[in-house]
Design a protein around this nucleic acid. Structure first.
Length: 107
DNA sequence: GACATGACGGCAC
DNA sequence: AGTGCCGCCATGT
């Protein structure tokens, strides 16, 4: 087993909190994990994630672009899943964060 | 152990 | 406003 599965699990746990119809960003998740400016790690973790258990399609970059779509079954899978959940897209194909960004509730 | 790479983000030019 | 560089940190070579 990995020396520290905590990082993966914390990322997955946060991603699982994102409800249908909402999305979050790599940067916000990284910040929530107190690993600021290490958004790359979030993407890396999601790449190794079990897509059946983690709604990785709900994580986009800061501009609302589906930068991880190539890691799904087909390049259109990510967008299709989001559309099914009610996400609307801009003409350029990016998600309207103003409307769909999920804000984590802090305790 | 050095070096490149990656589902990113911020800031300098 | 577009482009580029650097920081971040785990992995593979």
């Amino acid at each position: 087993m990995p020396t520290s599965s905590t990082f993966y699990e914390q990322v997955y746990e946060l991603v699982r909190l994102i409800p249908r119809g909402k999305v979050s960003t790599y940067g916000i998740i990284a910040e929530r994990l107190s690993v600021r400016s290490a958004a790359r790690m979030v993407g890396w973790a999601l790449n190794k994630a079990d897509l059946a258990k983690v709604p990785a399609h709900r994580v986009v970059n800061r501009n609302g672009e589906l930068t991880g779509k190539l890691h799904f079954l087909t390049p259109d899978t990510m967008r299709e899943m989001l559309e099914t959940e009610g996400i609307t897209f801009r003409p350029d194909g990016s998600v309207n964060l103003e409307q769909h960004l999920f804000r984590f509730i802090r305790s």
